[in-house]
Amino acid sequence: MLFAQIIFYLLAGVAVVSALLVITRRNPVHSAIYLIITLLSVALIYLQLQAEFLAAVQIILYIGGIMVLFLFVIMLVRLDEALRQEQFNRQWFVAGVAVVVLAVELIGVIYLGRDTALGPEAGPEALKALQPNTERIGEALFQTYMLPFEIASLLLLVAMVGAVLMARRRVE
């Protein structure tokens, strides 16, 4: 097995195991730490897929931004009572069965369609189109996807106003 393959399976294993820990931990702070580990291994997988810019964005935005926000909110919310309560809701058994069915279905479809549905892999020369990564993404973002980019910035503005409005204390 090649070095790159070992790295991938290692990262994938870490990502899946810590994702499982995210949804099973009682304490949200522990969940957040495991989610950070998952996100970090996903970032490294991006790096392996030659998406350096995206890996950096994942680290800065997801881990350095969103997860900090999560931890900040966890510290603001009083959790002592919630920690002592039951962590799973009543429909957990039905949900589990449904999710297992979904997982089997997904794995089956991916496994059966692995050769036919995807078509041939891009060769090394086609991968040159991804490099230099930052420049390529910049071109795509500001030329082909200019309108979605502007809409995304609008979305962020709306989200910012909404978040401030909702978290604000009512001024009587």
Partner: peptide, 28 residues
């Protein structure tokens, strides 16, 4: 990577944007 096309990565950036907005509003 499969197609050697950078569009997928751009979509992923948009999804990260949506995730940021979602997290901000959700936590609010």
């Amino acid at each position: 990577r499969q197609w050697g096309d950078v569009s997928g990565q751009v979509f992923a950036i948009f999804i990260i944007t949506v995730a940021a907005a979602e997290a901000a509003v959700g936590l609010g």
